[in-house]
Amino acid sequence: MNNSLDLICIIDDDPIYTFAVRKLLKINNFSDNQLVFKNGKEALDGLITMQNKKDNLPDVILLDINMPIMDGWEFLEAFKISNFNKDIPIFITSSSVDNLDIRKATTNTLVNGYISKPLNNQSLQEIKRKCL
């Protein structure tokens, strides 16, 4: 695993949220490069294309649950069988406080943590701590 989180992948269908997260990452000098996908399907296709082109895959994925076309859970299933050549930590970011969602997220082996929205500096520190 890398020592820094240079490229952060945000998968979320809410443009206001993605705008705000990118700002937050920049203001806190967390990362300058972000990949943004509007849903699971777009993200999966994009990541596979990157891998085929031998581009650098992201260092961490922030994944929303409720999205159109392919939601967070479906993305995780597809991600599992896509054989990416990099071990990318995934964090579920959601505003759901439903215990079922939280339990489902934390018991998924691909998921490194559940980060409750809205994100703030503390959430970023938690992500960093768990990844590095």
Binding site: D14, N66, S94, S95, S96, V97, D98, K117, P118
Partner: peptide, 11 residues
Amino acid sequence: VSHNLRSHGGN
């Protein structure tokens, strides 16, 4: 209430 409203408020 628990999800959508929270998202907007959080944003």
